[in-house]
Amino acid sequence: MTVSTIKSRPIYPGLSPDLNARRNIIVCDKAGAAAVTELFSRADSAFAERTTIILADSLSATETQTLSRDLAPAAVEIQPTLADGIARLRQLLETAPMGLRLYAAGSEPLIGLVVQAGLDFSIDHLSIRTEHRGSLMRRVQCVHCKGYIENVTTNPVKCTHCGLTLLVRDHYSRRLAAFQGVCIDAEVPGEIPPTEALYQ
């Protein structure tokens, strides 16, 4: 479901290299790493040399080895979780100059959190190059209790904070980096449609 009639639902056009950027930062997960290797194949080696990759995912020793090799000659930093990856990104942006280009490749929560971090540093969302790869899982905010539900793969989904059963809408907030979840059985409590694994 990456096509939606709801206009707030983000579109991810795919990675393309900014050959003029003096420095690149790419945040990706395991699935997104494949998009990064393809990106490098479309650019010169100097592009990769100007690039720092934050690979935020839990990796086996073999995966670490393979991916570090595939993504060279860029500097690859491996972070065990998405939250660690975003924290590291924010640290790098703290001292970054103009001429930096930001990229994100992988799941939607990863892209959303990169774009959200970018906004905090006055990077326009349109200048961030994004590609969706891998899982369709979503980050959802419960509109009732305002809690975030991570890695949502079903619709409806139970709010992990207030317990209401939520319909996951395609309405998306960049500021919150989340889709909107609204109580699905508000009219008739208990009248809940079957759970579908829509976002595997």
Partner: peptide, 22 residues
């Protein structure tokens, strides 16, 4: 509609859920 959710959105985004008109 939720201000807290929609604040920061552009004109097309906050009207996103409206059918037909887009």
């Amino acid at each position: 509609w939720s201000l807290d959710f929609d604040v920061g959105m552009n004109f097309f985004e906050w009207h996103g859920p409206v059918p037909l008109a887009h």
